[in-house]
Nucleic acid binder design. Structure first.
Lengths: 102, 102
DNA sequence: GCAATAACTTACCAAAAAGTAATATAGTTA
DNA sequence: TAACTATATTACTTTTTGGTAAGTTATTGC
């Protein structure tokens, strides 16, 4: 963590990576099974998916629920903290849509 | 560039890096001389600063104005496209301020 | 009793991002 | 004529991030 003055730094430390905003964005519509979520994130590797959801969970942005069945079932959902990013995520998506055709 | 479905991808390709949001954020208040802007971004190296503003310029988010004097004077400012990120940047900063004390 | 299943985990390697330190520039001032 | 200035560039190295492929688990269904 940098000792910079503006809080934007803190935000970037939590969601300022390649995959985090995409994972959070796809969870806005509700909880998803691990495999389903992963398939929505085109291009992500097995390893990066697991690693990224682990970090999001540690930072309190998503929750992980394990169902004790075989084969395994795991669901991810946004926490309240995660949900509070909804505006930012939707604005970023909308901004991308606006400028995509330049 | 990934061939993902959601426009969020495009946004992340333009501003989804360590330093870009910080540089844009500090330009929200108006144009700044190169050296002044760089000093506001605590921790950034000489190289990364130049590299990052070059990319932001290429993507049309900031403008670079060179004054032909010695020693050199260069000013950076947001373009209209850059200014259109204002809400997103301020929301991210605000979000960071809200959760920083957890 | 063997394959199929979903969700990982690990070891290993490659690629990308970032840092360091030295150097260039060219007028102005001492 | 030498130092100073602000901005930038380059070569080199380190750090971080990401990818691949194989292995693990434990029950179900054939």
């Amino acid at each position: 963590m940098s000792k910079n003055n503006c809080p934007l730094h803190y935000t970037l430390n939590l969601i300022g990576t390649k995959w985090k905003p995409l994972i959070l964005f796809h969870l806005l519509e509700g909880p998803l099974r691990s495999g389903v979520l992963q398939k929505k994130i085109s291009g992500i590797s097995n390893k990066m998916f697991t690693q990224t959801v682990r970090e999001l969970e540690q930072d309190g942005l998503i929750a992980r629920e394990v169902f004790p069945v075989v084969p395994p079932k795991v669901e991810y959902s946004l926490t309240d903290k995660g949900k509070s990013l909804e505006n930012i995520l939707r604005n970023m998506d909308e901004w991308g849509a606006t400028f995509y055709k330049d």
